[in-house]
Design a protein around this nucleic acid. Sequence first.
RNA 1: GUGGGUAUAGUUCAGCAGGUUAGAACGCUAGUUUGUGGCACUAGAGGUCGUCGGUUCGAAUCCGAUUACCCACCCCA
Length: 416
Amino acid sequence: MALSAPRGTQDILPADAARWQALEAIFRQFCARYGYGEIRTPIFETTELFTRSVGEETDIVSKQMYTFETRGGDSLTLRPEGTAPAVRALIQNNLMAAGGVQKLCYTGPIFRYERPQKGRYRQFNQLGIEAFGAAGPEIDAELLIFAADFLQAVGITDAILELNSVGCPACRPQYREALRSAIAGVRGELCGDCERRFDTNPLRILDCKVPHCKELTKDAPVILDILCDECKTHLAGVEKNLQKAGVAYVINPHIVRGLDYYTRTAFEFVTGGLGAQNTVLAGGRYDGLVAELGGPSTPAIGFAAGEERLLLSAGDNFPLPDAIGPVFLAAMGATAAERVFTLATELRRAGIPAAISYGGRSLKAQLKEANRQNASYALILGDDELSRQEIILRNMSNSEQVVLALEDVVARMSEI
RNA sequence: GUGGGUAUAGUUCAGCAGGUUAGAACGCUAGUUUGUGGCACUAGAGGUCGUCGGUUCGAAUCCGAUUACCCACCCCA
């Protein structure tokens, strides 16, 4: 019985790896432009890090994390997100002590125990950035410009930026109560899920897909009406800077964040083609988290994006750089095959990608192999048995051929 | 955790009112080509029809269970 990978995981095969490498290269390029330095944190952390950042009671902690116990009895968890580990590392290594703004970026696997579906896996890869120490709206706008341009650069041209403010500890509780009291009268008419959400997460009721729920809540208050002056000013500042940069956005007051440490700016870039998972990149401001995890009170904002979703969403628009295939060395005859092996080594040591075929196949088969490997050129070593020891350089794309001397081969290939 | 769909060759799929040796396309191997890839033609290899059980003289086909994958709900840090 053959084994398969666990549910919700996948192999990234050589044929796809080029896309991943290119995606991450583009991301690193943007990080360099905007001054984000890479941080690599452990794949697993203490469970407490996530229970403290996410909250003890949620479904997230109780059934969506990969938590396990060490032999020594410590509880560890495969990281279910990138922000909390980054914050932990920031605090532990005292990065804020350097003063100014700390900008961190990361890529890597994330683990969530969920039922897989389109664009959703149990192990997936995220790329993300976090900026610590800047409270004003400029950094929000800068980060959104980064995100918008990055999505463009990877070929996602139809993503829409949806922007909202979730308020702050001063005004969000007021909104939550205003919403509850507005809906309380029709609570009995809501669907079962919303009935439950009323207690657990009333803001999510506004996003219910059931038409009747939508109808019941269409006149419910939105948070933008209830924001405090500071939050309003902040949002206005973000919008002004986005407009100056020419970044299109829409205000969507239904964007919510379940957790209390989120403040003010919240956003999602949404797109079609991802099934029910229509968010391709999301983030927001979390001025409360660093202190929540025991660090100095530090304003912060970040975003993260699932790399699988980015590639899925970009599809054929993804700007895959042209792969330059190897030089393929083909042999006519047994002694020529030995010369091929030696010459391939010589070329590779000179830094030139070289491929050969294995096992003495016909010349036709060897050239077919060259084709399969997307070879740019083929070097055909002549038949020793017929004393035709010349080397033919064949351009695989237009079949042009020239004859080379053995000692010229490396120099000639270096030019190409 | 809940619901729906699918499972036949390396891949994408056909076959299914139950009936001898299970098909196609593409891919693969080789030949036509005293050695030169892509095009064409020809031949060949490759499947215990997801697994287990049941009905039947007979099951890829009908029934049940199970597993895997896909999609959606819940959740979404």
